[in-house]
């Protein structure tokens, strides 16, 4: 039987919206890299030094890992129509826990788990305020944002706080080490990405989060436990921030709650937005969020190699944010369109 109304093949269906969405961020990344290639002829060169890969491309990936991890958690929270401003504080707290327990002499594997547990607790706190008490996400996470770095400093005081630096083969191995030529944190980042992807896409959690973010009332009536799902989103975000905290803390061999990962929440939100996530919630794009984080890092790196003062970084970021947002805003697009075509509303 020839079925005219036969649905298109699955491949087409996935590919069409996919390419459309991925086009702009990927194009942006490509343009940045091509410009870099023109500025510095050796830009794409990758060589092996002391048993590990070196080169600008590797460097971009390497530096983008912490932001990308935070941004992935942020993408989940933003998908639920929320936002988490406290990720920087969570990083500070998990870092402080590491320094504290190392001074207390715990096994380093246990310390890793403790640091992650601390970040999960932070995420639960945020989730409780948002889903339990019903406080607006920006306001609710502001509390931990303000006080979290103080909590980190306090944890450092638990052992005197005079010298928060430490050495740990395990943690530094995870952060700055390398395995078969590849920096370990790239492998770790990839593993975490896959793990998160499995949780979001191989269970129904992602669908539920998107449903709650898209229309919480409807999701509730369709049988989704909106509160629990929102809570889960903040816990996931806390955990991802905790991993970023482990990498950043091990990188500097010290816990510095005051200035570690300053403004990382902004970079993370920016990465999600560049990746096509709408702050109005309802969609989670994990892969595109990573691209967003890479775009940010590539920008930073190219400002460095272009010889421009690094100060331009912030300004360029700001311009990129505004540009992307104005393009994303339907309202502005139509109105700009009207103005361009000479019409008025």
């Amino acid at each position: 039987m020839t079925d005219v109304a036969r649905l298109p093949r699955r491949r087409d269906r996935v590919a069409r919206p996919g390419t459309h969405r991925a086009l702009w961020p990927l194009l942006a990344l490509a343009v940045i890299l091509i410009v870099d290639g023109m500025i510095s002829p050796n830009f794409f060169a990758i060589r092996i030094v002391e048993g590990r890969l070196f080169g600008n491309l590797i460097d971009i990936l390497y530096r983008a890992v912490p932001t990308a991890l935070v941004a992935l958690g942020m993408a989940v929270v933003i998908g639920s129509k929320g936002v988490d401003l406290s990720v920087g504080s969570i990083i500070a707290i998990s870092g402080a826990v590491i320094a504290w327990r190392i001074h207390a002499g715990d096994p380093h594997f246990v310390i890793l788990l403790l640091a992650l547990a601390a970040s999960v607790v932070c995420g639960m706190w945020n989730g409780l305020l948002v889903a339990g008490i019903g406080i607006q996400p920006i306001v609710a996470t502001l509390i931990l944002m303000v006080s979290g770095r103080g909590v980190g400093m306090l944890i450092n005081l638990l052992y005197g706080g005079t010298d928060p630096s430490f050495e740990s083969a395990l943690l530094q191995g995870l952060s700055t080490g390398h395995l078969w030529l590849i920096p370990t944190r790239l492998i770790l980042g990839a593993v975490l990405f896959v793990a998160l992807w499995l949780v979001i896409r191989r269970t129904a959690l992602g669908l539920f989060i998107e449903a709650v973010g898209g229309n919480a009332a409807a999701a509730n009536l369709a049988g989704v436990n909106a509160r629990l799902v929102t809570f889960a989103a903040y816990v996931i975000c806390g955990l991802m921030a905790g991993w970023a905290g482990v990498i950043l803390t091990a990188d500097t061999h010290t816990s510095d709650p005051v200035s570690v990962a300053l403004y990382i929440e902004l970079d993370a939100i920016l990465a999600v937005v560049i990746g096509g996530g709408s702050l109005a919630g309802g969609r989670i794009y994990l892969g595109m969020t990573v691209i967003g984080a890479l775009v940010i890092q590539a920008l930073t790196t190219s400002i460095l190699i272009s010889g421009l003062p690094p100060e331009y970084n912030l300004i360029i970021k700001a311009v990129v944010v505004l540009f992307v947002l104005v393009l994303q805003s339907d309202n502005a697009r139509t109105r700009i369109g009207q103005i361009v075509s000479g019409g008025r509303r």
């Binding site: 902004l266 939100i269 937005v273 003062p309 100060e311 970021k317 947002l325 309202n331």
Partner: peptide
């Protein structure tokens, strides 16, 4: 543009801090 104030002023934060260094 009907963009959340949070994000627009965030861009403002970046812009002015960058301008400081310039």
């Amino acid at each position: 543009c009907a963009i959340q104030p949070f994000i627009v002023t965030l861009a403002g934060l970046f812009l002015l801090r960058g301008a400081c260094f310039m």
